[in-house]
Computed example of a mutant assay.
Amino acid sequence: MIRPFDILELLPQRPPFVMVDRLIYYDPVVARSEFTIRPDNIFCTGDGRVEEAALVEIIAQTCAARMGYREKTEPSRDGMVKIGFIGMIRPLHILRAPRIGEMLTTTVEVKEDIFSTTLVETFVEASGETIATCSMKIFLTDRVPTTA
C-alpha cells in the first residue's frame, strides 16, 4: 500500500492542467494512476469529444507523479518535486480517444533509469480496455516548480 498524498504534492502541474486524480500503486519499477475525464477538462471539445492529446499528458503526468512519490518517500532523495521534460515518445498507439466520464487507469513501467533519464513503457486502460500505449523518455531536471 502506498502512502497517501494529495496529488498536488507529487506533481509540478497545477489546475486546470492536472491530469491525474491519484497515484494508486508505486514500487521502484511500476506506478499506476487513476483519472476521471470531467466535462470541464481542457482537452474536452465543444462537441463532447476528448482530444487524443489528453492521453499523452495523462501518461506524462503519471510519470511525474511516480517521480514525485519517489522524491517524497525514498530516504536518499531530497523530497522536492522536480520538473521533467518529455524527450521521446515512440511508438505511440492510440486505439481510441477517451470519453467524458471514463475513469482511466495509467500504468508506467520503468525499463531504464540512468542518472536523470527514465525510459518507461506505458498503457492507458478504460474499463479494462487498453486505449493507448507508448514508450516515453523523461529527462528530470534539478529545477523545482515556482509558485507565482
Rank of each mutant, 00 (worst) to 15 (best):
I2Y: 02
P4N: 15
P4A: 10
D6Y: 13
I7C: 04
L10C: 06
P12L: 06
P12A: 06
P12S: 09
P12G: 07
R14Q: 14
F17N: 10
V18L: 09
V18S: 03
M19D: 06
V20R: 01
V20Q: 02
L23C: 05
L23Y: 06
L23R: 02
Y26R: 06
D27F: 11
D27E: 13
D27Q: 10
P28G: 10
A31M: 08
R32Y: 05
E34M: 10
F35E: 04
F35M: 08
F35T: 00
T36S: 07
I37Q: 05
I37R: 01
R38C: 07
R38P: 10
P39S: 09
D40T: 08
F43W: 13
T45V: 07
T45L: 13
G46A: 10
G48E: 07
G48T: 07
R49E: 09
R49C: 09
E52P: 04
A53P: 05
L55P: 00
V56A: 07
V56W: 00
V56Y: 00
T62I: 05
A65G: 01
A65D: 02
A65Q: 01
A65V: 04
R66H: 11
R66S: 08
M67Q: 10
M67F: 12
E71A: 14
K72R: 15
K72W: 01
K72C: 03
K72N: 03
T73S: 02
T73R: 02
P75V: 15
P75G: 14
S76M: 09
R77D: 07
D78A: 04
M80T: 10
I83K: 02
I83S: 01
M88G: 05
L92C: 04
I94Y: 03
L95K: 09
L95H: 07
R96P: 01
R96A: 01
R96E: 06
A97W: 00
P98G: 00
R99P: 01
R99L: 10
G101K: 00
T105V: 14
T106P: 03
T107K: 03
V110S: 05
K111P: 00
K111E: 13
E112F: 09
E112Q: 15
E112T: 14
E112L: 12
D113R: 13
D113N: 15
I114H: 11
T117Q: 13
V120S: 10
T122K: 03
F123M: 11
V124C: 08
V124Q: 02
E125C: 07
E125K: 15
E125V: 03
E125T: 12
S127G: 11
T130W: 05
T130A: 13
I131S: 03
A132T: 11
A132Q: 06
T133G: 04
T133S: 09
C134S: 15
I138C: 02
I138Y: 02
F139Q: 02
F139H: 10
R143E: 15
R143M: 11
P145D: 04
T146F: 11
T147V: 12
T147W: 12
